[in-house]
């Protein structure tokens, strides 16, 4: 107690600051860092959840590199990212840009766009899964069949399935991105637009020279955020393909789903942990690259 009493006011403040900071640090080390470290440890071991863990060195990683399913899944994960992020970015920007200029029923429209974001991904995935079914129950195919167009195999096809699963995932994320974009648009000072108006420049120049450059921090945020989201896509895929998760023929399987199956269907925890470490590294690298490219020069 004496020790504390002898401190200066400044030192006491520091002690208190650390006391408060200790809580989140403790929380993070127990909830985040310890399991992360443990997962890295398990990736070098063989463990079926029940027995003892045995060291296997790099075996899990060697198996990973030689596993064709892993490479297919790796590719799928990047297809989700490379299709999902730009598409959702462009669509959400276009909607936000026009919604920003709309006065008529502005609040109502904004709510309509935001609604899917608040909907449970599981419920949404099951409804879309029903939309995609072949006749006689699928909404889309029934419509096609009734006007005499051949059915489209949405989910039961190795080429169509991934875009079909991605579509509702993009739609679900739009609301959030639109709101962020609108906040970004509102933050641009009106004086720039007034100056442009006085100079008499066209709308394209205004968009290209003022709006987009000034939205850069917003775009960086959305790109990083949605990239991480698409790299971790799971619930849409799993719920739309529960009978054959990630199918057909692994054509929709993302890395997270493979990790889940390896861990909790095959009970091969070591192999699953190795996949997790790879996912961690991918997320890290992708985020770092994006931050570097999109950073203010």
């Amino acid at each position: 107690m004496d020790l504390y009493r002898n401190l200066t006011i400044r030192q006491k403040q520091i002690v208190w600051a650390y006391a408060f900071l200790a809580l989140p640090i403790l929380f993070y080390s127990v909830i985040r860092f310890y399991p992360t470290g443990n997962a890295i440890l398990i990736s070098f071991q063989d463990w079926n959840l029940l027995g003892a863990r045995t060291w296997t060195g790099l075996d899990n990683y060697v198996k990973l590199l030689g596993d064709p399913v892993f490479w297919q899944v790796f590719r799928n994960t990047f297809v989700y990212l490379l299709l999902g992020t730009p598409i959702s970015l462009v669509i959400s920007f276009i909607i936000a840009y026009h919604l920003d200029k709309t006065r008529f029923m502005h609040g109502f429209l904004r709510m309509l766009y935001f609604l899917p974001f608040m909907t449970s991904a599981v419920a949404m995935a099951w409804v879309w899964r029903w939309f995609y079914q072949p006749v006689p129950i699928g909404l889309f195919n029934n419509a096609l069949a009734s006007i005499g167009i051949p059915q489209i195999a949405f989910l039961n096809s190795t080429t169509n399935a991934l875009p079909s699963v991605l579509a509702p995932a993009v739609w679900a994320g739009l609301g959030f991105q639109i709101i962020i974009f609108m906040a970004g648009l509102r933050a641009i000072p009106r004086s720039y637009y007034e100056a442009a108006k006085i100079d008499g420049v066209g709308w394209w120049t205004v968009l290209w020279e003022i709006t987009i450059p000034l939205l850069k921090p917003t775009i960086v945020f959305i790109v990083v955020f949605s990239s991480i989201g698409f790299l971790r896509i799971f619930d849409h895929v799993f719920n739309m393909t529960t009978n054959n998760p990630g199918g057909p023929l692994n054509s929709t399987k993302p890395l997270v789903l493979m990790i889940y199956e390896t861990a909790f269907d095959s009970f091969d925890m070591g192999y699953a942990a190795a996949q997790t470490v790879v996912l961690f590294l991918v997320l890290l690298v992708v985020s770092l690259i994006q931050l570097r490219i999109l950073r203010d020069r």
């Binding site: 054959n244 199918g247 057909p248 023929l249 692994n250 199956e261 269907d265 095959s266 009970f267």
Partner: peptide
């Protein structure tokens, strides 16, 4: 591994 072995049958047909 029941689900793993089932998956192979599923893919065989696909």
């Amino acid at each position: 591994d029941e689900s793993g072995q089932r998956q192979l049958m599923v893919e065989m047909v696909e």
